[in-house]
């Protein structure tokens, strides 16, 4: 059940290592595109890390992403960059801990509503603070961080997240999570502690999202609560993860890749009808790919494997 082969680790490192050379020959538009893609791949994978096994649908991705961005806006110019990233991850993790302790006992649908409300609440809190305390709503980020550096950071983050996800899946905690996702009551009877497991995963996933927000922030120069806590991001992440398929580690990442290409193609060829086309595509996804692309691929694979067997049986009957 629990595999110990090093192949996936080596594979992830090899792919990340190869992709790290991309900035050497890509144009800056291609690099910008790759950055957007990596950002969504990190967010969707982090989302799937928590939501895949536990089946909790979280709409709070943007809360942690925004916390990361705001951390950069506030301490970016007074601290060295690694410290800024550390602070962003810690704040994201601390908020996730508080939120998780309060809500992870809630059943599925209530959790969705809560996380949706949470992003609005955080946005309003930050707005209130800026309006009444700092008396200025926008914050400026003037950091000399190049696109290439952002690309490398996101790539490294994605590689670490993938390595962690594989390690987690093979660990006792990962096994426990699958049991919890299957049937929480049964898991309790086995002596597992579902609340702790869910909380640990939620905090880890949130820290990753906060890191992504921090890494991306230097691209925008100016942020305000409406930009940093834009709820659309949360929905995009969910759709990407669902498109890819959540029951595999690489599913959300695959969804993020396909969706980013789709977004780009739509906005280049149908700039006026982007939202309309996107809506149509979503409907198609929900109807045709209920288990995501990975689910569909596995179904197809299973069918082709079964076919030869049945064929030989028929041949056998005839003779």
């Amino acid at each position: 059940m629990i595999s110990r082969s090093p192949t996936p680790y080596v594979g992830i490192l090899a792919v990340a290592g190869t992709l790290a050379l991309l900035p050497l020959y890509a144009s800056s538009y291609q690099l910008a595109f790759a950055i957007g893609l990596l950002n969504f791949a990190v967010l969707a994978t982090a989302w799937g890390l928590f939501s895949g096994p536990t089946r909790y649908v979280s709409l709070a991705s943007v809360v942690f992403f925004g916390i990361g961005s705001y951390t950069v806006a506030i301490v970016g110019e007074v601290m060295p960059w690694p410290a800024v990233l550390l602070v962003a991850a810690l704040i994201g993790g601390a908020v996730a801990l508080v939120v998780g302790l309060a809500t992870l006992r809630l059943a599925g649908i209530y959790f969705v509503i809560f996380t949706f409300g949470l992003s609005e609440m955080v946005r309003q809190l930050v707005t209130w603070y800026e309006v009444n305390v700092t008396l200025s709503i926008g914050r400026y980020i003037f950091l000399d961080i190049t696109q290439t550096q952002i690309f490398w950071q996101l790539l490294a983050l994605l590689a670490i997240v993938m390595l962690g996800a594989v390690a987690l899946q093979r660990s006792r905690l990962g096994f426990a999570l699958r049991v919890i996702g299957g049937d929480e009551t049964m898991a309790r009877h086995f002596g597992l502690n579902p609340t702790f497991a869910k909380l640990a995963l939620f905090v880890a996933s949130s820290m990753i999202m906060a890191l992504a927000g921090a890494i991306m922030a230097p691209r925008w120069t100016y942020i305000d609560p409406a930009i940093a806590f834009n709820i659309t991001l949360s929905f995009q992440v969910v759709i990407m993860a669902l498109l890819g398929g959540m029951h595999r580690i690489y599913g959300p990442m695959l969804g993020a890749i396909l969706m980013t290409f789709l977004f780009e193609a739509l906005s280049n060829h149908f700039p006026q009808a982007f939202s309309l086309m996107l809506g149509l595509v979503f409907i198609v996804i929900v109807y045709l790919l209920p288990n995501g692309i990975v689910g569909r691929l596995e179904e197809g694979l299973a069918r082709t494997r079964r076919k030869p067997a049945t064929a030989s049986a028929k041949v056998g009957e005839r003779t």
Binding site: T7, P8, G11, A14, V15, L19, Y250, I257, T260
Partner: peptide
């Protein structure tokens, strides 16, 4: 799994 994951990433970023 890893091979497929590898191919997915390569296909994705390789097209760029």
């Amino acid at each position: 799994l890893t091979r497929r994951q590898t191919m997915a990433s390569l296909a994705g970023l390789g097209v760029a």
